[in-house]
């Protein structure tokens, strides 16, 4: 133990840890580039495709989301069962996840982009995203930050249910939820295709 401590004080190791400190940021950039590339290829960086989903005339956005969820879910729960990763669940409440989500949904329809897809729309060159939407989103988050002290112990806590997962809620083994959820999502996608969307 003592020897290890000594080594970590050498300039060479200090340099190494600085290098390590930058690497996570580089991975963030690389994952972002891949995410943006896939969002564009899927068509999700376009107002017309996003709003057509909300008008229920084009199901591209739902197809992207559901196939990402089913793929991601199986891999994430496999890696969790192997002990390779830990889940990162957000704590929830009715105030946040119903009221907040409804406000978000209205903004989603009015703007026609969401925070991830607007970054993609900016890369795609859409000027309403750059000049109108980006400025609006930043302003909206700032208004929230100003109001936060008044909201945090009130509406945001209303109907608090903590950071639970569906398997935790039903008190069952993870796979008892993962397998039927995956089957259900595949069935929904199949029905969307069969209905001709």
């Amino acid at each position: 133990m003592k020897r290890k401590k000594q080594y970590s004080k050498t300039p060479h190791d200090a340099e190494n840890s600085a290098e390590k400190g930058r690497r996570p940021l580089l991975f963030g950039l690389v994952f972002g580039i891949l995410f943006g590339f896939l969002l564009h290829k899927g068509g999700a960086t376009k107002y017309d495709i996003i709003v057509a989903q909300l008008l229920l005339t084009d199901f591209t956005v739902l197809k992207i989301m559901l196939s990402a969820i089913v793929t991601g879910m199986i891999g994430i729960y496999f890696m969790k069962s192997m002990g390779w990763i830990k889940l990162s669940l957000k704590s929830g409440s009715i105030g946040k996840n119903v009221i907040g989500a409804l406000i978000f949904g209205v903004g989603f329809a009015v703007l026609g982009y969401c925070p991830g897809t607007i970054a993609g729309a900016i890369g795609n060159g859409y000027l309403d995203a750059i000049v109108g939407g980006l400025a609006g989103i930043i302003l909206g988050t700032w208004i929230f930050a100003v109001m936060y002290p008044k909201l945090k112990d009130g509406i945001l806590k209303k109907g608090d249910f903590g950071d639970i997962s569906l398997p935790g809620l039903f008190k069952v083994n993870d796979w008892v939820v993962v397998v039927p959820a995956a089957a259900l999502i595949v069935l929904v996608l199949f029905l969307i295709e069969k209905a001709g969307y």
Partner: peptide
């Protein structure tokens, strides 16, 4: 306007 609502809602809904 949509961006303001969206940004506010995104933080409200975490």
């Amino acid at each position: 306007a949509g961006g303001i609502i969206l940004g506010f809602g995104a933080r409200f809904g975490d």
